[in-house]
């Protein structure tokens, strides 16, 4: 049963399928905002499948093992996080409840992997991208960590399951002043974690031509795209878990969960379509000078019980 949970539902397979559907959902919203029709529902799957049929090119300057392995490391951690979150949502009391710190570290790994892979490619343009990703990474982690731990401190637990349990008893974290502020900060950090406009700085197509994924092609690119799709599934789920009480799969809970999920992805998609890209120093200033104090405020508010 546990193996089934990890591998099929709500683990690996489920995460991949939902992730790819979410990619389509996001693209469809984008298209609608831009007065277009948008791709058909199977587009995400088709893209991945096609990329696997393609030749894989490896630049001659690359450190081959690092270059090839990096996407797999990122992908596997994204998969792991997705499975852990899913299982934790289903069984908050299960023994391996997925500690919040472990989860936070694991969520870092995809970024790190991609940074590593792109700098292993030996292409300086990719390296500009990875330097930007790195800077972005350390800017959004600070408010994100503050929010995460202020919630952990509020629930007085360090496990995802504990936070879900806490919310089942005391109501979702979102419905309080600190929760709303925290949610906004976490949502913007999520946007950056996903690398979407206005934080697609490392991938900026108009500046450094896909930057960090510039040198990836064929199957490796497919793995990276899968990873992105998984993150697009995981991070909203993570937000739901820590702010909205996790997924509740009993009766109407399913519907409620689906609506929450779709709304969060919708917000992310709308943000990405109504903003220009920031410059890296502007993004860092935003995170450190505006969102970090906000996150601290949220932490203080949650400490005093608002």
């Amino acid at each position: 049963m546990i193996i089934f949970n990890y591998l099929v539902f709500p683990g690996f397979l489920f995460a991949i399928i939902i992730g790819l559907l979410t990619v389509w959902y996001d693209r469809k919203i984008t298209a609608r905002v831009q007065w277009r029709v948008g791709p058909p529902w199977y587009q995400g799957f088709v893209d991945i499948l096609k990329l696997f049929t393609k030749e894989t090119l490896i630049p001659s300057t690359a450190k081959k093992t690092g270059f090839v392995l990096a996407p797999f490391v990122g992908f596997s951690t994204a998969l792991l996080v997705a499975a852990m979150l899913g299982v934790a949502g289903l069984y908050p009391k299960m023994s391996f409840t997925g500690d919040i710190i472990v989860l936070w570290y694991l969520l870092m790994v995809p970024s790190i992997a991609i940074i590593f892979g792109s700098s292993a490619s030996g292409n300086p343009i990719s390296q500009v991208g990875s330097s930007r990703e790195m800077k972005l990474f350390m800017s959004y982690e600070l408010p994100f960590v503050i929010i995460l731990f202020s919630i952990a401190a509020k629930a007085h637990t360090l496990s995802i399951g504990g936070i879900i349990e806490y919310q089942r008893v005391n109501g979702a974290n979102l419905w309080s002043l600190s929760g709303i502020i925290g949610f906004i900060v976490a949502l913007i950090s999520t946007q950056a974690k996903l690398g979407l406009v206005p934080f697609d700085i490392p991938e900026a197509e108009g500046e450094i031509a896909s930057g960090i994924i510039l040198e990836y092609s064929g199957s490796l690119l497919a793995i990276l795209k899968l990873m992105k799709a998984l993150l697009l599934y995981t991070l909203p789920l993570f937000l739901i878990t820590i702010f909205l009480g996790g997924m509740n799969l009993q009766g109407l809970g399913i519907l409620w969960f689906i609506i929450e999920y779709l709304v969060i992805v919708f917000i992310i998609s709308i943000i990405r379509n109504t903003n220009p890209r920031l410059r890296i120093d502007q993004a860092m200033n935003l995170f450190w000078a505006i969102l970090t104090p906000l996150a601290t405020l949220s932490g203080i508010l949650s400490y005093v019980g608002l």
Partner: peptide, 16 residues
């Protein structure tokens, strides 16, 4: 210009 700074919506609207 919108496309360059990642604001694809402006790109689409202007071209429409």
């Amino acid at each position: 210009a919108g496309h360059f700074i990642g604001y694809n919506t402006v790109f689409m609207w202007a071209w429409k």
